[in-house]
Amino acid sequence: MALTPETLTRHELNGLSVRVVDAGNPDLVGIAGRVVIETMQTLHIDDGDRVRQVPKRGATLEFALTAGEPEFTDGGYPSPSMNRSRTDEAAGRRKASGSTFKRESETAGVLPGQSGSTRKGSPDGDGRTPSRTGDCEDVVYVTVDGAQLLSRPAHRTENAGDSKWR
């Protein structure tokens, strides 16, 4: 069971790139970075500058999944200084994700409507919207309603996601 858009809500969130599309607190909208710590009700997101704590409840999160292993090159860690130094080393991959970040902000104009629609239709829809961008075929953006992630991190594998007993 690899990390796919379907299994994301039950999989490990630490280390994934995420962007806050919508949140109850307007100051939190637009935070982008790596998830460093997950708690039952919040995510700590390292945005390169400092670690921000975002409540899951009421937030809409957009995770960026890279096709291969998501930038788990050894020695690279999402701390700001290391990140910058690593940009030179692993040029290919980091450059690709850099361009996708630009793309991410481009699609941001499109996505609020999308995320709004998922939130409106959340009773029947599962709230996950895998959107595949045209050029960067190796990055998949998954929009998740934060309320789906409300669970103790170690229990989420069992609790979240679709029930087999439908």
């Binding site: 069971m1 690899a2 299994t7 490990e12 630490n14 280390g15 788990f72 860690y77 701390s79």
Partner: peptide, 24 residues
């Protein structure tokens, strides 16, 4: 490989990297 084992695998890598960055 189940999701639990994969999560452990990822956490292994993350823990390693965190120590390398002195984030004990």
């Amino acid at each position: 490989m189940s999701i639990a084992e994969e999560r452990i695998d990822r956490l292994h890598t993350l823990a390693k990297q965190a120590v390398a960055a002195r984030e004990f």
